[in-house]
Design a protein around this nucleic acid. Sequence first.
DNA 1: CTCCATTTCAAACGATAGTTTGAAAACTGG
DNA 2: CCAGTTTTCAAACTATCGTTTGAAATGGAG
Lengths: 206, 206
Amino acid sequence: MTRPSEVTRERILKAAERLFAERGYDGTSIRAIVARAHVNQAAINYHFEGKEGLYREVLRAAFRGLTEHQLASAAQSGQLSREDALAGFIRRQLRPLLARDEASRHIRIFNWESVRPTPVFRKLLSEEAAPFMGVATDLVGRFLPTADHRTLVVAAIWLLGQCSIFVRNREQLSGPPVELASDEASIEWLAQTISRWATGALQSAG
Amino acid sequence: MTRPSEVTRERILKAAERLFAERGYDGTSIRAIVARAHVNQAAINYHFEGKEGLYREVLRAAFRGLTEHQLASAAQSGQLSREDALAGFIRRQLRPLLARDEASRHIRIFNWESVRPTPVFRKLLSEEAAPFMGVATDLVGRFLPTADHRTLVVAAIWLLGQCSIFVRNREQLSGPPVELASDEASIEWLAQTISRWATGALQSAG
DNA sequence: CTCCATTTCAAACGATAGTTTGAAAACTGG
DNA sequence: CCAGTTTTCAAACTATCGTTTGAAATGGAG
């Protein structure tokens, strides 16, 4: 029982993800989505019961894509030294700098939400952010074995902040006055530099 | 020659700053602004030549307010030890966490711009970000006397990232699963904790 | 007070937004 | 192949957007 409408559904989701990532919820019109997806305008209401329902689906997919990627990589980090695990974590966090791929779009959608969270996003975050935060807290916990839980959570966020500022402001930082390069070698250098500093901080604190 | 229209102008600017900070450029309607400012709808076009012109003025005021505050505080940091100067810088960066004051609104406007920069913002940034970045690079430069300019710029951004993630995501972090408190004592603890880690990183790197 | 530029105002404009409609087309199970 | 459901489609609907208009009100200079 293959559903013929799945093709339309997927086309809408794909187009909507790109546009929501690029222009945000308010800045993206139904007409822009259907034009890119090559479907009829009423298809969105038929398949998703409106713009908001479509956005909900895009948000869920983005969240799933991001956390699954992070959790999968973190599963094997126990075999690495804490320093190598930290460096790998930071390099993965900086990955969206390299290409405008799917992960990059997912992060952009999250960036929009971080400015003005929708109720849909709030719910998603409160329900499903715990595993990802667990990965990060476990990582810093290997450096801070005596720290309490609150400190570990703050340390995890602090670590994420060191990466996210480069990812989030990629566009501005590529121009003057910073002129941050985005070729593979430069990003690798950036990842190693941040890893060195973060390692120094955690080692001297633990 | 006092201009009677200044009252209307200021009322519009004040209302617009609040709404742009809260809902972003696209999410804020002219009608919402004039309703809050208690002025006629056409006043915006009369005084600012349209919504975009008004936004330009709000953006300029926000930029001025933020950087002036930072630059003024940085002027006397040369008398402090590098560790104390760093701690003060971090504490000032975290200030918007304490209250929803003017600085908090300015930062929110910048957050909107970091997701999808308007041409107005790009120009402003490329022309006037240098002094502020200079303060930050000078600060980290006291820890990294042998580093080249690119490394100092990256270190400055890296330092800003450690603070901005808490400021930017204040709303989400105050809820589950993080439950970050925002009373004065908690923020002071946060500032000292970040200062300790950042100091450790820069000391071990320099 | 009078004159004239400045400022305010209510109303309407064209454009675009998200959604609804009802019929046509396509597909599926029998 | 047919009957009945699912899916697509062009068009129109209502609401809201930013902007424009032209007259009314206001304020200061002579």
